[in-house]
Nucleic acid binder design. Structure first.
Lengths: 227, 227
DNA sequence: GTCTATACACAGATAGAC
DNA sequence: GTCTATCTGTGTATAGAC
């Protein structure tokens, strides 16, 4: 699969997040008209992402957010009770949607070698599509409350476990070599994350996500695949 | 070489940074007694690092820093003219020292295969020794002024170039395979960075830096070394 | 449902005593 | 060389008009 095919399969996640937030928080959100809420949530999250990437969430002021989202300060506070809550909600709903897509795509494959390729591509393609969200999420996770930070870490480890399980299964079926699967999953994850953490560098070097995916897969296979 | 040997070779970098800062900034620092300056710079940088890792540099207030360093607000401002300057000086002097050590260690080796191993170990061991500084530096680089941020990026790319050059040399000498050296250097760097970015994870799994180094080297060699 | 005006706390920075 | 006290700007959050 190439990135352009992936884009056709996966729905627009930006609106997904807003709908999902509306469903879960309609009791605490003071505004009641669904269409208004989703529309404004989108403005809020879009602006949060832009400013957050420009100068970090901490440095973003509610006045910044008001200006960039086009909503007044008062309006913002009828959607969220605090600045901190915006971060919490935006990151946790994003994680949910991403986890779901990732699992769905991997489960379609039956053989470990194909599963591994799908896991790598699905992760890279998702981070390509939502690269601002991923970058923001990575950088701001440490600013969450300790409960929420724990959730973020668990979500990371879950992705890693998906990869590790594929490696273990492949080894049991005699396809993959006998290697420390936990460590291997960890460094594979590191390579996947580099794609969205250093996005600008790869752009400058004219490396696109399909090329990066291919390279990573060859790298991993040369290490893992029995010849 | 193992980590414990490395520790014997490399001098205490925390005091190095303070001395280096004193030399370079003695004109703008209002205090004149060298011993006092170095002693207090150490207190300031130690506290900056601790608080910065706990809650980020932006969230650190000058009052926090005053309390934790044991110096008054007034005293702090006779060493630095602003909060921003503390970050700039601390990161740029650290980069200088690290770059120097890295190059010195690699230059000792003559053969590409040995150079590659040394580069990997030197990087991992340095980040192990100064892991708080590296983590802090990675997370806060985006909060620098655009000039200083550019310096930080260039310093990153320089490390990557060191690796790429080793790969190219090895290929020219017929030892390494013909692979996209730029991409390879990039993902190797990603694996090296994971060591200090996810330090806690590896601790929990009882993986030490020597084991991680060995794993990474086997991984790279299986991809790169001609059989 | 959205706005403007404002309360109140706390940030960075400095002046001047010691 | 270091401290305390204080200035001033700006941050989050809210009250109440429209």
């Amino acid at each position: 699969m190439e990135y352009k095919n992936f884009l056709r399969i996966v729905p627009d996640s930006r609106i997904d997040i807003c709908r999902s937030v509306y469903e879960e928080y309609k009791d605490t959100i003071k505004i009641k008209k669904e269409k208004t809420v989703i529309n404004n949530l989108k403005k809020i999250f879009d602006a949060t992402l832009k400013i957050g990437i420009e100068k970090g969430f901490q440095a973003m002021t509610m006045r910044d957010l008001s200006t960039r989202s086009g909503l007044s300060m008062g309006a913002l506070y009828s959607y969220f009770s605090s600045k901190e809550e915006i971060l919490k909600v935006f990151l946790s709903e994003g994680r949910r949607i991403i986890g779901r897509i990732l699992v769905e795509l991997i489960e379609k494959e039956k053989e470990p070698a194909a599963k591994l390729i799908t896991a790598v591509k699905a992760h890279l393609f998702l981070t390509e599509k939502m690269h601002k969200w991923f970058y923001f999420s990575y950088m701001e996770a440490k600013n969450l409350s300790s409960d929420e930070r724990e959730n973020a870490i668990q979500s990371e480890l879950y992705t890693e476990k998906l990869i590790e399980d594929i490696l273990i299964e492949g080894h049991q079926k005699g396809i993959f070599r006998d290697i420390d699967h936990s460590l291997a999953a960890s460094v594979i994850k590191a390579m996947l994350q580099d794609w969205y953490l250093k996005r600008g560098k790869y752009s400058k070097r004219k490396v696109n996500v399909d090329q990066y995916a291919e390279f990573i897969i060859i790298f991993i296979n040369s290490f893992y695949l029995k010849i």
